[in-house]
């Protein structure tokens, strides 16, 4: 046994979970799939007196298409997201990001809510949520609220969630029309955290111009990032005239604190990041043009 001792609670409803979290305060942590939390406990990077397991709360699971959006319960596993034909049709980026997350054994346990609440800056789902302007639903003793993804990620492993607040669901907008979606990342081995990665969604208008686009970046800051300035420069441009490498370089211009470690310097990561954006842009553009 490697983790420090803790008390374990397995509520069967969300109300019960909220009450337990309120009761035990910041000595408590919610346990989702456990694929990041349990290693941190094993390494004693994190120590809690109480773990509140959300795994036995049926209302946190499942997905629901509502008109122009799709809502995923926070407890939906990566495996369920990745194998859902409905997700593949509604939010292709989520489906395509899924195989990059760890390995299939991790994806069988890990959950979308856990990944987003954990807020690793190199993780895939947070970058997709940020770029696509997902809405994050939460509950606490003060009631429910919805947090836009743009306001959610505040730092490495840090979010706008209060200590007594639980992420319950994630709602993504469905992009229609002539759209294309792609994710690219460079990792030393498949399933490792990315050195740098990028997600691109773009939609063409009737005249073949970029009607709108969203560029997400992962592994390139203390949070997932969105390259809004680069998006603005290409929106309205004929898709044939867009220089993908230029988009990649423009996307890197927004970055303020690119990490440097033994896997790469900040300069190296910027070069990789620009290349990932360019590759993802080309693939997304191909898809938007030719299906």
């Amino acid at each position: 046994m490697k983790p420090a001792p803790f008390a374990y609670h397995a509520p069967s409803s969300l109300d019960e979970a909220v009450a337990l979290l309120a009761e035990h305060g910041d000595g408590a942590k919610v346990l989702a799939g456990g694929q990041s939390l349990v290693p941190m406990l094993a390494l004693r990077l994190a120590v809690f007196d109480h773990l509140i397991d959300l795994g036995r709360i049926p209302e946190l699971r499942g997905l629901e298409r509502r008109g122009g959006t799709i809502r995923l319960g926070a407890g939906t596993t990566h495996a369920a997201v990745g194998s859902s034909a409905e997700v593949a049709e509604a939010v292709p980026l989520l489906s395509r990001a899924t195989p990059f997350i760890g390995h299939f054994q991790i994806r069988n346990r890990g959950t979308i809510g856990g990944a987003i609440a954990h807020a690793d800056p190199a993780a895939e789902y947070p970058a997709v949520a940020l770029a696509l302007e997902a809405e994050l639903e939460t509950v606490s003793p003060r009631g429910q609220r919805t947090i836009p993804a743009a306001d959610f990620f505040t730092g490495t492993w840090t979010t706008a969630l209060a200590d007594d607040e639980i992420l319950t669901g994630v709602t993504f907008p469905v992009w229609g029309g002539r759209s294309g979606h792609a994710i690219e990342e460079l990792a030393r081995r498949h399933g490792d955290f990315a050195v740098a990665g990028a997600t691109v969604a773009l939609e063409l208008d009737d005249d073949g111009r970029v009607g709108r686009c969203a560029i997400g970046l992962l592994g390139l800051g203390s949070t997932p990032e969105r390259a809004t300035a680069a998006e603005a420069t290409v929106t309205g441009t004929a898709i044939a005239d867009v220089d993908a490498q230029g988009v990649g370089e423009a996307a890197m211009a927004v970055l303020r604190s690119v990490p440097a470690d033994l896997h790469g310097s900040a300069d190296y990561r910027r070069r990789v990041g620009a290349a990932m954006v360019a590759r993802a842009w080309r693939r997304a553009a191909q898809e938007a043009l030719h299906g």
């Binding site: 490697k2 349990v38 290693p39 390494l43 054994q105 346990r109």
Partner: peptide
């Protein structure tokens, strides 16, 4: 490794392959 990297402890949990070092027995 006991922290989810090596896969030596893989078992089937309700049929799904998982790392047994990243599942608590109580789960």
């Amino acid at each position: 490794c006991e922290h989810g990297v090596c896969g030596a402890c893989t078992v089937l949990l309700d049929g799904a392959a998982v790392r047994a070092c990243l599942v608590l027995a109580v789960q």
